[in-house]
């Protein structure tokens, strides 16, 4: 198993700084959804990770902890995530994306 980034919706959707989307070295990996977060009653949308593309560098953790001071991102073993976003389940819209969360581990 290996580590991937996991973003706390509670914290992210209350702050919505979007810094992690700009600092992740991998393209199309940390995405932003206007719906996820708002549909749970929070003020903003939230960033989320397409875990099949995450290489586990934890740069987003440093950015979130030290630049944004939000402490919303943790590294978690991929099999400890009950549900996560995967590239195949992500839909791009005009100004946002949506993801149907599913188990990241097959079998």
């Amino acid at each position: 198993m290996y580590l991937v980034a996991d973003i706390s919706v509670e914290i992210c959707a209350s702050k919505s700084c979007k810094l992690c989307t700009q600092y992740c070295p991998e393209a199309n990996t940390i995405l932003y959804s206007e719906e996820m977060g708002r549909d749970q009653g929070f003020k903003y949308g939230t960033a989320y990770v397409a875990v099949d593309r995450c290489k586990g560098c934890a740069q987003c953790v440093w950015v979130c902890d030290n630049m944004a001071k939000n402490n919303a991102i943790k590294m978690i073993m991929i099999d400890q995530l009950p549900k996560a976003a995967l590239t195949d389940n992500i839909t791009y819209g005009e100004k946002s994306t949506t993801a149907v969360l599913a188990s990241p581990v097959v079998g």
Binding site: K18, T21, Q22, A27, N28, I30, L31, Y32, A47, Y92, K95, S96, T97
Partner: peptide
């Protein structure tokens, strides 16, 4: 960033 499909794969 994070809201559109990037051309880098």
């Amino acid at each position: 960033m994070g809201s559109f499909k990037e051309i880098l794969e």
